[in-house]
Design a protein around this nucleic acid. Structure first.
Length: 648
DNA sequence: TTACTCACG
DNA sequence: ACGTACGTGAGTAAG
């Protein structure tokens, strides 16, 4: 693997005496407010060809064209102007759009037809970038023309960095492919194989063939590859559109495509982090960790690798002879629940738990997060994956900021801060999944509880224990809260019992008391299961589909798991639909406040806004998020907000 | 690469 | 009797 510290052979190479393109060595730090995207044109100086005097080695297939002259560029614009939609694809020097520079853009206005516009090659003839941008800008910004792309988020970010804004409507073939079929890969090449029966040239083959970085390769070779990408993408749209219709997922597809530019913006803007706070925390944790490790070794009577579950198991269940309660696939478990059970019998298990807590904070957060800060912007730019979760939720990675510790005892979230002069506005849905359940079930008692604005856990407690609302004890509310969480997860009495640390028969009594009071919920769940068994899938309020297999499995455990998935997916997935739709409605309102959406954590949105506009924006955010998400959705939605310098 | 553990909603 | 609920990503060990 290459690292920025180890430039390849080719970085030293200069062609035709022109200076090599500037590379990542000198990061231009862009401090301050969330990334106002400075123009960042590709490294595009036309240079004498490395291959001057040689015959072109690549013959383009019929229908593919290189756009390397002003006349060809005009012809491309005319051709694209004549069609209602076209596919586009970008070639870049890096897969990270924060780092990669534009090498070329390919377009396809029809099946069998594609154009490649080289803009960042270091060899061969090409039209200067400012002329390309000028010629294509209007077209790409035209809201009357649909842009088709495979993972458009990437191309939008790269083009934006190069100074070209691409407006919708967007038609993302990767998202379409995922909605049509979640299993298997969703790369362009795989999709072309599956839906077009085509075997495409792999990127690795292109690179290996030239043994050069893409921007240094002969334009013709890249053109052949890039044209195929754009053209296959165009063809994919035609193959996938009818499948989206067959599965009744046009509405959710439209939602996801409208979300693409919103997510692109969120990733590009990133979030500011106070590295000094994290470094200070890391130092403190390291100190505590050493002491805790020594305490563990003292209790164990020997030294061992505290990060190895296997070695911990050998000590606890071998040397110390403690009884193993829970098993994993490969041996006795040392997870938190297992160690808690042993805590009364020996000092070691409790100390291991304390060690693990510190170690998690140190390695996963305090040490790892500073490494994720971009040297280019000084901010962290996590990837938000619209199709990352089967339920319809986002997933978040590199780093995952959706699972930062929430415990007020630590300072991890406090290290996430607003830019100078700004604050973070956090807005989260209250009880969104239970409200979805109320809507889906139309259970009168649950609907009434929300419409009355009651504390729903207390209401549930009052109902299942048969006491007045005002008389509910904290313990009763705790049990009711467990029930309500359990409902969303497709609860089993066993799971409920384990979660609440109560006997199974008691959990069974609570569950039946609940379903007696909320009979609509019981019948709604039975309906979902019946339909799931008949159709093989469940759906959300927006029509997002999730296939569920195993509902007819003879193995009770497998069947139970499938049933819980079938119950949970419409609830979790509808909640995802609700917040995604709110993001789409909210995004166009943010510029007037100078604000940017920077994080989404399932039921929470975090927005960075100039301090003096925060109060005004809060009203807008709340009113948009609380809007009814669908016709006939009568459960009131409630959004709580916080405004602070930091995310905590 | 797989298994385990653990952070979040 | 049941292997302890739904959905994720990351760090580490060990093969």
């Amino acid at each position: 693997m290459r690292t920025p510290q180890q430039p390849s052979l080719f970085d030293e190479m200069e062609i035709g005496g022109a200076p090599a393109a500037p590379r990542g060595g000198e990061p231009r730090v862009r401090p301050g407010p969330a990334g106002s995207s400075l123009p960042n044109p590709p490294d595009a100086s036309p240079q004498p060809s490395l291959f001057a005097g040689e015959e072109p080695t690549v013959v383009l297939p019929e229908g593919y064209r290189v756009v390397a002259t002003g006349a060809a560029l005009a012809a491309l614009v005319a051709r694209l102007t004549a069609v209602p939609r076209f596919a586009l694809d970008t070639e870049t020097t890096d897969l990270d759009p924060m780092v990669g520079r534009l090498v070329g853009i390919s377009f396809s206005p029809a099946v069998g037809e594609a154009f490649y516009v080289p803009v960042g090659h270091s060899v061969g003839r090409q039209v200067p970038w400012h002329r390309v941008a000028e010629a294509l800008g209007t077209l790409l910004g035209d809201p009357a023309r649909a842009k088709i792309g495979h993972n458009l988020k990437f191309d939008l970010r790269v083009l934006e960095r190069a100074g070209l804004r691409v407006s919708g409507p967007h038609w993302d073939t990767m998202i379409a492919a995922y909605l049509v079929r979640a299993e298997g890969g969703h790369g362009l090449k795989e999709c072309a194989r599956r839906y077009l029966g085509r075997e495409m040239q792999q990127f690795e083959d292109l690179i290996q063939q030239g043994r050069l970085a893409i921007q240094q390769m002969e334009v013709g070779a890249v053109a052949r590859y890039a044209c195929e990408d754009a053209e296959a993408t165009f063809a994919l749209r035609e193959a996938l559109a009818p499948r989206l219709a067959e599965t009744d997922q046009e509405a959710v597809f439209r939602l996801e495509c409208e979300l693409v530019p919103v997510v692109a913006q969120m990733e590009t803007d990133g979030v500011a982090v106070d590295v000094a706070t994290l470094e200070e925390l890391a130092r403190a944790l390291e100190e505590q960790l050493v002491a805790k490790a020594e305490a563990c070794f003292a209790a164990a009577g020997q030294r061992f690798n505290l990060n190895s579950p296997r070695q911990i198991g050998a000590i606890l269940y071998g040397s110390l002879g403690l009884p193993a309660s829970r098993m994993t696939a490969t041996g006795p478990s040392t997870d938190e629940m297992a160690l808690r059970e042993l805590a009364g019998q020996h000092a070691l298990p409790g100390r291991i738990l304390e060690y693990r807590e510190l170690n998690k904070l140190l390695t996963t957060y305090a040490l790892a997060l500073p490494r994720a800060v971009s040297p280019i912007t000084g901010r962290i730019h996590p990837g938000f994956h619209q199709i990352g979760a089967r339920s319809g939720r986002f997933s978040c990675a590199h780093p995952n900021l959706q699972n930062l510790p929430k415990d007020s005892a630590n300072t991890i979230r406090r290290a996430f801060v607003a830019a100078p002069g700004h604050v973070l506005l956090s807005a989260d849905y209250s009880q969104i999944e239970l409200r979805i359940l109320a809507h889906v079930s139309q259970d009168p008692a649950l609907l009434a509880a929300f419409q009355a604005g009651e504390d729903v856990h207390a209401r549930t407690a009052a109902d299942i224990f048969g006491v007045p609302l005002a008389a509910v004890t904290p313990e009763q509310r705790r049990v009711a809260k467990g029930i309500n969480f359990g409902l969303v997860y497709g609860m089993s009495p066993q799971g409920l019992a384990a979660q609440l640390s109560i006997p199974v028969p008691e959990a069974e009594r609570y569950a039946s008391a609940y379903f007696a009071r909320y009979a609509g919920v019981k019948t709604a769940m039975a309906d979902i299961l019946r339909r799931a068994r008949a159709q093989g899938f469940v759906t959300t309020i927006t029509g997002r589909r999730r296939e569920v297999s195993g509902l007819k499995a003879p193995d009770g455990r497998a069947r139970g798991q499938a049933e819980r998935q079938a119950i949970n997916a419409p609830i979790q997935g509808s909640a995802a639909d609700v917040i995604k739709a709110a993001m789409v409605r909210l995004a166009p309102r943010l510029p007037e406040f100078g604000a940017r959406m920077i994080l989404q954590v399932h039921d929470e949105l975090v927005i960075e806004v100039p301090e003096e506009r925060a109060a005004a924006l809060r009203e807008v955010v709340v009113s948009i998020m609380e809007e009814s998400p669908a016709p006939g959705f009568r459960v009131p939605l409630r959004v709580d907000t916080q405004i602070a310098r930091a995310w905590s």
